[in-house]
Design a binder for these strands. Structure first.
Length: 571
RNA sequence: GCGCCCGUAGCUCAGCCGGAUAGAGCGUCUGCCUCCGGAGCAGAAGGUCAGAGGUUCGAAUCCUCUCGGGCGUACCA
């Protein structure tokens, strides 16, 4: 990164000696796709061709002629075909960066880009009506990893879970538990009826069970616990409250346990109800009213979104007097901004696509800085079992819980699978592949490279070969060695690119390349058994690769094992 | 109808703030351990980047349209 800045300045210096360069022109530097072209390249000559009315190649040559570069840092600078200027780092620079990597160790890759900035990442935010599903898993892992990425570039990050434990949903939940409880505790038994699950299976439920009640077995578990604790004393309860609160507590316990298995710990659980209790919801509605974009019609309160670029208007308070979700959502975002967060990142499933534009409209009307709000929409997860799609619905009880998924494939594989694709694409999660063919799973490739380096380091130590950051790296000249150094040294910029884009999958791609470069190095360049100085230098390089793998996996929330179960001998 | 996302190798996907020869994994085929962990390495085959226009010195990438898939578009939560 420092190198990029250095070259940018050098180029600007050269450009300042030329006529006709537009004011404020900034040269761009990129790593060429093809390694042969160098470490960094600029296309600025081609961009300037229009303004200077000269051939790009000529301009590039003129720039190159004016460039003053430190030979200690840049070994080569060449002008090629259409008008690129390619730069190649000096070996010395690479060796210095390698030493820096080893010296920084577990801190390598951390930066201060976000220093002094506070970010709130809101994710999961599932209401306590049932266990987390596979869909929540993608949300949870994405949110947590984005939070990790932000922390690594210096942000002060708060992980927040927003939930609603009031309203119709919870009443139905309570009534469902009550129905099951009556079924369990009525000595004489209760009348029953049939309901259908999402897969059309029939379920026998008590007659008092709501038709749209929750059919999952976890409801029965909760009812059983109540029966054990209270006997049949709750049969005379006046309302669903004891059932609802027991259900809520039990379900939250389950949810927290599931998140913990994935290594996720929330900082704040934010209850929507608190926004009503504090008067924040009412205050926001009043403030919006003052903007003139609120009106009454047929007993409901409307937000005039049609005047703000939307197709129609939006109800904020129903004629029943009950607010829709929009209103507390708006109040919640006002609250977040009010708490002083510089970035408010929401991780939402694709089904929420329609809600956030309204929130942003409201924030702007209220003169709040809506630009602080970033919404990350991820597409749905398709779960495949036996090559067939598994359909999911919490209420209808045919879902695969996130817990079951973790048990089946393990937390590391689960995290990896949820992160390996761009959030904006549908994710195909093939259970059979994740589990049965785990030896083909790329997460093991990364972990294996790490474990292998640990093994080599142990063996080296046992025969008295140790190393530190002050090796003579100039002994590392093999193509595979230099390629690995290049890859390792890129880690900080790869990390910050992933963080700034909020795209964890980039980190996975980068780490896969690290493991690949390491494997090539490992096969081409022996460490143990070589002359001592070479062994030490190569060991140091391997340890640098280990640093990057360990730190990269830490960002992704995946463990970096020091050893892995040995496989059976190959035939 | 309207809004957002997607269409790239047999399959699953990178690449998308325009750049140099479109990449990877899996699958298929061929080689490779006397040796630091073979969950590996080396190599091969496999492409009208959905289609058509446009902008540009240059387009998988930007714009328009068409086709195909997903998700929304409730006084549901």
């Amino acid at each position: 990164m420092a190198m990029k800045e250095y070259l940018k300045e050098a180029i600007q210096q050269a450009l300042s000696q030329m006529d006709g360069v537009p004011e404020g022109f900034e040269p761009e530097l990129e790593a060429p796709r093809i390694a042969q072209h160098g470490d960094l390249a600029t296309n600025c000559a081609m961009q300037l061709a229009r303004h200077l009315r000269r051939a790009p190649l000529q301009i590039a040559e003129a720039i190159a002629a004016c460039l003053v570069l430190d030979a200690d840092r840049i070994a080569r600078c060449e002008v090629v075909r259409p008008g690129f200027i390619n730069f190649r780092f000096s070996k010395r620079h690479l060796y210095q960066s390698l030493a820096a990597c080893l010296a920084a160790g577990l801190q390598f890759g951390r930066s201060r880009k976000g220093q002094g900035q506070r970010a709130l990442v809101e994710f999961v935010s599932a209401n306590p009506t049932g266990p987390l599903t596979v869909g929540h898993g993608r949300n949870a892992v994405l949110g947590d990893t984005i939070a990790n990425l932000l922390e690594w570039i210096g942000y002060d990050v708060t992980r927040e879970y927003y939930f609603n434990d009031a309203g119709r949903q919870m009443r139905v939940l309570g009534a469902s538990v009550r129905g099951r409880y009556e079924q369990l505790t009525h000595a004489a038994g209760v009348a029953t009826k049939m309901l259908r699950t999402g897969t059309d299976a029939e379920v026998v439920v008590p007659a008092s069970f709501p038709d749209d009640g929750y059919l999952g077995n976890y409801i029965i578990t909760i009812a059983k616990a109540l029966a054990e604790k209270h006997g049949d004393a709750l049969l005379t309860a006046e309302d669903e409250a004891p059932f609802t609160s027991a259900a809520k507590a039990a379900i939250f316990e389950t949810i927290k346990g599931t998140l913990q298995r994935l290594g996720i710990v929330m900082d704040v659980f934010f209850n929507e109800q608190s926004l009503y209790d504090s008067g924040a919801v009412a205050a926001v509605l009043e403030a919006l009213r003052d903007t003139g974009y609120i009106y009454q019609r047929e007993g409901a309160t409307w937000f005039k979104t049609s005047a703000l670029g939307k197709d129609g208007d939006t109800v904020l308070v129903k004629s029943s007097g009950e607010p829709t979700y929009r209103l507390p959502d708006i109040a919640y975002h006002c609250d977040k901004i009010g708490r002083g967060f510089d970035r408010c990142i929401d991780v939402f499933g694709a089904d929420h696509i329609a809600t956030y534009p309204d929130i942003l409209r409201a924030l702007r009307l209220l003169k709040l800085d809506a630009d602080r709000v970033e919404v990350i929409i991820y597409q749905f997860v398709t779960l495949l079992r036996g090559g067939k799609e598994v359909k999911m619905s919490t209420r209808k009880a045919n879902f695969v819980t996130l817990d079951a998924l973790i048990t089946e494939v393990g937390a590391d594989v689960a995290r990896y699978f949820f992160l390996m694709r761009s959030a904006k694409r549908h994710l195909e999660f093939d259970l059979d592949l994740a589990k049965e063919a785990s030896d083909k799973n790329p997460v093991f490739y990364l972990q294996y490279a790490h474990a292998r380096i640990c093994s080599i380091a142990d063996k080296a130590a046992s025969i008295g070969i140790e190393t530190d950051a002050s090796e003579d790296f100039s002994l590392l000249v093999h193509d595979a060695e230099v390629a690995l150094i290049r890859q390792v040294v890129r880690f900080p910029s790869a990390l910050s690119a992933a963080a700034l884009a909020r795209e964890p999958h980039r980190m996975i791609g980068y780490l896969r390349e690290v493991a690949e470069q390491f494997s090539q190095f490992y096969h081409h360049c022996r460490i143990l058994g070589e002359p001592r100085q070479i062994a030490r230098a190569r060991l140091a390089l391997a340890l640098a690769a280990r640093v990057v793998l360990a730190n990269g996996l830490a960002v992704l929330g995946i463990t970096a094992p020091t050893s892995m179960e040995r496989r059976e001998e190959r035939p």
